[in-house]
Design a protein around this nucleic acid. Structure first.
Length: 407
DNA sequence: TTCGCCTTGAGAGCCACAGAGAAAC
DNA sequence: CTGTTTCTCTGTGGCTCTCAAGGCG
C-alpha cells in the first residue's frame, strides 16, 4: 500500500527527501523545497515501490518498479530467480525541477496521469504553481536553474556505451537541467550530489567496477543511509571493503603515519589518498583534470565511515564488531589510506563478488556465537533454580526437558 | 523548571559441570 | 620424545539484580 505524503497527507508520496527524512508527493516536494536556498539543496529521489519507506536506488525494468537497495537485493537474489533483471540506477536531484522535467527524467515512473494527479494536490497548489518553463518563479533565485541538477539513469546490467552517454556529458542540455561535470556551481569544499561522472571516455573503467557513476558528498546530510546515495550503484565498493580480502587491507592502515589532528580541516585534492576521492578521481578523468576541485577532509572522512557502515543498513556496534573494525576507527578520526589498486575487482568477477557479498550479508548474524556445541547441549538439558545451574540430583524449579516449567 | 516516582531496557553476574588445554609425571 | 594423568580454566542458558534513561505528574 502506497504511503501518503508526509506533508499534505493526501497524495500518494513518490519522492523521498533524505535531509527531511520525509516522503512527499510531487507538488509538496516542490512546495517544501522551494522555500529557501537551503531547502533547495535537499537531495531527493524516488520512493521505493515495494517498502514505501526507503529511497529507491534502482529501477527494475522487468518489474517496472523502483526499489531501495534492500528490496532490490531481496528481490533479485538467487533465491528469487530474478537475478537477471535489468535495473537502472536511480539517482537523486536537488533544486526545484518542474513537472515536465521530472517526468522527462523519470519518464519510466511518472506517467502523465500520475504527474497530473500529484499536481492537483491542493495544499501544494495553494502555495505554488507549476510552470514548466519557469522554475525560477518558484524558487525565487535567479540562479535556481543552476541548482536544478538532475541525474539521469544508467543501466546497471547494461553499461552505457560512449555513444549513449555523450549526449549526457558536459554541457547543459538546454532543457532546464544539466548533467554536470564536477560541482562547478557548488561552493568551495562542496561536491554536488548530482555530479555526473563523465565515464563515456572509458568504458573499460566502468566495466571493471572501478567506475562510480556518482560521487555524492553532501555536507549537510552525512548519515549512514547516504552511503547508497553517495556511491550510487557502487555496491562493489562495499564488497571490496568487507570481503575477506578487502577488509584485511583496511587493517594495514595502522602502519600508516598518524594523522595530525591539529591540522586544520583542509580541502584536499581529489587525487589525495582516500577511497572516495581517489576512486572518484580514477573514475572521473574530468575531475582529475580539474585541480580546483576540492573536498573538505572531514567530509571525506565521513564518507569513509559510511563506506564501513555501508555493509548494512542497520549499522550498529555489532557491525563494528562483526567486521572487526573498531567503532573508533569508524568515527573516522584515525588516518586512513586507500587499500591500493589491488582491491579493485576485475570486471569479470564483479557479479560474482557482488553475489558473494549479498550472500555473506544474508548470513551475517549478531546472535551469540556458540563455540562449543557440546557445552550448549549440556547447558540446554541442565536443571536450574532461578536460572542458575544446580548440582545434579538437587531439587530444581526448571527442567529444560519438561514442556511446562515448575514455577 | 525542578523534583520524585515509575517504567523500560540493557547489561552483569550467578550457578554446575563438561571439556579444552596446559602442566606434571 | 611420547603417552598418560592431573589440574585449571572456559563456556553454556535462564533468571535476577542493578543501573541508566526517559516519561509523567
Amino acid at each position: 500500500m502506497a504511503a501518503l505524503c508526509d506533508f499534505c497527507g493526501k497524495q500518494r508520496s513518490m519522492i523521498y527527501c533524505r535531509s527531511d527524512a520525509a516522503s512527499l508527493c510531487l507538488s509538496c516536494d516542490r512546495n517544501v523545497h522551494s522555500a529557501n536556498a537551503l531547502s533547495r539543496r535537499h537531495t531527493r529521489t524516488l520512493l521505493c515501490d515495494r517498502c514505501c519507506s526507503q529511497p529507491a536506488a534502482v529501477r527494475c525494468i522487468e518489474e517496472n518498479a523502483s526499489l531501495c537497495q534492500n528490496c532490490d537485493w531481496n528481490g533479485h537474489d538467487a533465491a528469487s530467480g530474478a537475478t537477471g533483471h535489468k535495473r537502472q540506477a536511480i539517482n537523486c536531484y536537488s533544486g526545484c525541477p518542474s513537472s515536465a522535467e521530472l517526468s522527462r527524467i523519470w519518464s519510466f515512473v511518472m506517467d502523465i496521469p500520475t504527474v497530473a494527479a500529484e499536481l492537483n494536490c491542493e495544499d501544494g497548489m495553494s502555495m505554488m504553481t507549476i510552470d514548466d518553463g519557469d522554475v525560477t518563479n518558484h524558487c525565487g533565485a535567479s540562479d535556481d536553474k543552476r541548482l536544478l541538477e538532475i541525474a539521469s539513469t544508467t543501466l546497471m546490467s547494461d553499461p552505457p556505451t560512449s555513444d549513449k552517454l555523450k549526449p549526457l556529458i558536459g554541457s547543459s542540455s538546454g532543457d532546464g537541467f544539466n548533467v554536470l561535470p564536477l560541482a562547478i556551481d557548488q561552493p568551495a569544499g562542496q561536491v554536488s550530489m548530482m555530479q555526473k561522472v563523465p565515464y563515456a571516455a572509458d568504458d573499460d573503467k566502468f566495466n571493471d567496477g572501478s567506475m562510480y557513476e556518482d560521487l555524492c558528498v553532501d555536507d549537510t546530510d552525512l548519515t549512514f543511509e547516504n552511503y547508497e546515495e553517495l556511491f550510487g550503484t557502487s555496491h562493489i565498493q562495499t564488497e571490496q571493503l568487507f570481503d575477506d580480502a578487502g577488509i584485511d587491507s583496511y587493517f594495514e592502515m595502522k602502519e600508516m603515519p598518524p594523522f595530525d589532528s591539529n591540522e586544520e580541516p583542509k580541502y584536499m585534492q581529489l587525487e589525495c589518498s582516500n577511497v572516495v576521492s581517489a576512486d572518484s578521481a580514477m573514475s572521473n578523468p574530468g575531475a582529475r583534470a580539474d585541480s580546483s576541485l576540492c573536498i573538505p577532509v572531514r567530509q571525506v572522512r565521513s564518507s569513509r565511515s559510511q563506506s564501513f557502515s555501508g555493509l548494512t543498513g542497520e549499522s550498529s556496534a555489532g557491525d563494528h564488531q562483526d567486521c572487526g573494525v573498531s567503532p573508533m576507527l569508524l568515527m573516522g578520526e584515525p588516518p586512513w589510506h586507500p587499500p591500493g589498486p589491488e582491491v579493485s575487482v576485475a570486471g569479470g568477477s564483479r557479479d560474482n563478488a557482488l553475489t558473494r557479498y549479498k550472500e555473506k550479508k544474508k548470513r551475517r548474524k549478531f546472535d551469540k556465537k556458540i563455540r562449543y556445541a557440546s557445552r550448549k547441549a549440556r547447558a540446554d538439558v541442565r536443571k536450574r533454580v532461578k536460572g542458575r545451574f544446580i548440582k545434579a540430583g538437587e531439587a530444581y524449579d526448571y527442567d529444560p526437558l519438561s514442556q511446562t516449567r515448575s514455577y
